[in-house]
Design a protein around this nucleic acid. Structure first.
Lengths: 205, 205
DNA sequence: TAACAAAAGTTAGTCGCTAACATATGGGGT
DNA sequence: ACCCCATATGTTAGCGACTAACTTTTGTTA
């Protein structure tokens, strides 16, 4: 039995990837034009020139076509690179700002559009919120792994999980405020304010 | 046209409430016995002796039969009663502990069972996570309203929202750890630990 | 070019959920 | 007591997300 693994540059793989992104593009276009709920999977499939089954072979659910967890592993890696003695919330804040800066300047408009769609669609919002549980664990892991050998897996404490979850909550509120201002406020600034609020609760007037 | 509002003690209202809770009881029983996804609405309705339409007249979705936002308004009220100069995270922590104590001793088993179900069912988890956005706003409002007249609505700042969101994240992690320990750990203790982690990030060894 | 395997299509079905319309029943006014 | 109406429930038909089973098409590889 010879190696039957598909070549990375093969026609087959390329076509598959093209189909996938064609579906995704048409889906987003239709969602923005006529709303998420008002767009059927059949409609997206037809627009992309495929059957509805092909849609589900590429995306497990209708919601999945909007989700993009490309960022999570990137941020996780940046957290892992922070010094071990840095306070968890500071570490996440810096890693996040760093990662955000990398994409904010180039993809700002796309990010805003997509985030608006997610926040205004209950089904997508719920998905995003649930995905944060997985992200929380990933970030907590990354916090624990700072300054350890690659194979080493230090304990993930409740404290680390709380701090990862709080950081994610802060980012989410910042995103929400960003969307509410329709992109007028600068997202990095809002993120900074959110993390600041996490560390130093303001007292009354 | 005279007052046609139904009396609170009427037979009609009582029957309706009975039907509602009968549906809910059978639903939970079936979910626990055979799993959430493996239980159809039709099945629940039949078990409760009603048609599937009656189910949806009492609960907007299948998930709603598990959700219980009875606690949120209670906690919100407790937050509102905290002194105005108390730091937001402290205020939420105390209000929450107070509210939790009221129900923990009596409903501990039910709470654990239900929470286990929610955390182990993606659809329910996603719903719960999304509901937290509404709860976050409610708590932020309550924080802002402390020591103000009833009709007065002070501004809800980004900072307050972040703190409310962080507090909810802390509680959620505590609940998750509680479920993971199968109720062996004390929930109030876990909540205290979670809030503590929020305020004083531990440094490395 | 023959043969294999991955990708896409076809079809039929389940389940959550809604709309429209029909029926039953409790509660108030007379 | 009776009638009338509002409200709770039932029936039926249908849409849309998603799955399973099977067939057809199409790169790839020997």
């Amino acid at each position: 039995m010879t190696n039957s693994r598909p070549r990375s540059g093969g026609l087959r793989e390329r076509k598959k990837a093209e189909t996938r992104s064609r579906i995704q593009e048409h889906a987003l276009r239709l969602f923005l034009r006529q709303g998420y709920d008002a767009t059927t999977v059949q409609e997206i499939a037809s627009a992309a020139g495929v059957s509805h089954m092909t849609f589900f072979r590429h995306f497990p659910t209708k919601e999945a076509v909007v989700e993009s967890d490309d960022y999570d592993p990137l941020i996780a890696e940046l957290i892992r690179r922070r010094p071990r003695d840095e306070e968890p919330l500071i570490a996440i804040h810096r890693a996040l700002s760093q990662g955000l800066a990398a994409i904010y300047d180039t993809d700002q408009d796309v990010l805003l559009t997509r985030t608006k769609l997610v926040f205004s669609t209950p089904a997508l919002r719920a998905r995003m919120a649930d995905n944060q549980y997985a992200t929380e664990r990933l970030f907590a892991e990354s916090l624990a792994a700072r300054g350890h050998a690659a194979g080493d897996h230090p304990e993930i404490t409740l404290e680390l999980r709380v701090q990862a979850a709080a950081a994610l909550a802060a980012v989410t509120v910042a995103l929400s405020a960003w969307v509410q201002s329709d992109g007028a406020d600068q997202l990095p600034t809002l993120v900074d304010r959110a993390f600041h609020a996490l560390r130093r609760p303001p007292s009354g007037p």
